[in-house]
Amino acid sequence: MAENSSNSAYWSANVRIIVISLIIWAIVSFGFGILLRPMLSGIAVGGTDLGFWFAQQGSIIVFLILIFNYAWRMNKLDREHGVDEE
């Protein structure tokens, strides 16, 4: 039973990290890259605006950060909850 409750705490911590990461994932691509681009049009980046930069560069860089951050935090979480591989 103790193991189950620990597992469910582990799982909800995992789901929380996933949800936060996916919100950021959506904001930089669907948000800054597409829907919110008109709002960012005032910020000039090399002949165009920040939305264009996010659509063609920024979103990809943020995706990378998200994945490495997730791997790092989860591997740490595994150890904290004692569910890591030996």
Binding site: S21, A55, S59, I67, Y70
Partner: peptide, 18 residues
């Protein structure tokens, strides 16, 4: 057509997390 850039890289986030 930035869609291709965001779509084909953003999928890795889903793959890695989910």
């Amino acid at each position: 057509n930035s869609t291709y850039l965001m779509g084909w890289t953003g999928g890795y986030v889903l793959l890695a997390l989910l």
